[in-house]
């Protein structure tokens, strides 16, 4: 465990010094984060300019879902996607053999292989959106709701990480999946809307098959104090179950790994 922690810290330091080497990116990424925030908020703005509530969600509450969405997206683009791109490349070129040779769990090495530190701007923007939403509502969350809301944020991040590990495992069989990150991004994009806005088949898909609801809608409802205890437990259990399943799939995939170079 201590070794794992040290490896992660070193990887982080490498990514950080990589990012510091391109200091002009600091400005570019900051500006991009602002532009993305505007782009993310616009559809919601359009929707609520003509409606007061949609499927039981008023504008400030929906804004909290967007805040969670931006936060999880920042983590997706800051940690998960860069690592996935690196992994796909390693598998294609055969360099993944060297990762397997190292005396550290391959899943940890792969998940932490590359960071985009500048995504911290997006994280700050997301926090600002949530604070603004509560300011619009006129009152903040209770301490208990805040704790549960934060806990479910972690559950949401874990659920997303599980989906990502499944994609990474899939790339052992179908090699050229460079656009997988775009698919992940496109599907995940749905998470900006409260899941109740969707109807019928899509709501089922986004709650159970591709559980984007776990990633944003439920944590936001918890923060708003709208989630009963049973659902909280179910959401947390669902996230953990996904994590366990993805770990099993990863180990199965790695047993079937046939190197590209040998």
């Amino acid at each position: 465990m201590r070794t794992l922690w040290r490896v992660v810290r070193i990887q982080l330091r490498i990514s950080l010094s990589g990012a510091m080497a391109y200091r002009t990116d600091f400005l570019v990424e900051g500006a991009m984060a602002l532009a993305w925030m505007a782009l993310t908020l616009l559809p919601m703005f359009v929707l609520y300019s003509a409606r007061d509530t949609v499927a039981g969600w008023d504008a400030p509450s929906a804004l909290i879902v967007i805040g969670y969405f931006m936060m999880v997206r920042a983590i997706l683009e800051g940690v998960v996607s860069p690592s996935l791109v690196a992994l796909v490349e390693q598998i294609r070129s055969g360099a993944f053999d060297y990762v397997l040779l190292k005396p550290v769990d391959a899943q940890v090495l792969v998940s932490m292989s590359s960071f985009e530190p500048w995504k911290i701007f997006d994280l700050l923007g997301a926090l600002a959106v949530i604070v603004y939403a509560f300011w619009r509502r006129g009152y903040g969350p209770s301490a208990g709701d805040a704790v549960i809301g934060f806990g479910l944020l972690i559950a949401g991040v874990l659920a997303m990480y599980a989906v990502w590990i499944c994609c990474a495992a899939a790339s052992f069989w179908v090699v050229r999946l460079d656009n997988l990150t775009y698919l992940l991004g496109a599907v995940f994009d749905v998470a900006r809307w409260p899941v109740q806005v969707f109807r019928g088949a899509w709501r089922f898909v986004f709650t159970f098959l591709v559980p984007v609801a776990i990633m944003t809608t439920y944590p936001a409802m918890a923060l708003l104090g709208r989630l009963d205890a049973r659902t909280i437990v179910l959401v947390a259990a669902g996230a953990l179950a996904m994590l366990a399943a993805s770990r099993a799939l990863w180990q199965f995939a790695i047993r079937n790994y046939t190197s590209a170079s040998s």
Binding site: R51, V174, L183, A186, W193
Partner: peptide, 24 residues
């Protein structure tokens, strides 16, 4: 082939928006 399947899935985003706006 797999890359193509992924691509096709990526471009079906309008279907999600369709569900959203038609329920609105």
């Amino acid at each position: 082939r797999a890359e193509f399947l992924v691509w096709v899935l990526t471009t079906t985003l309008p279907l999600v928006m369709l569900s959203l706006w038609s329920s609105v």
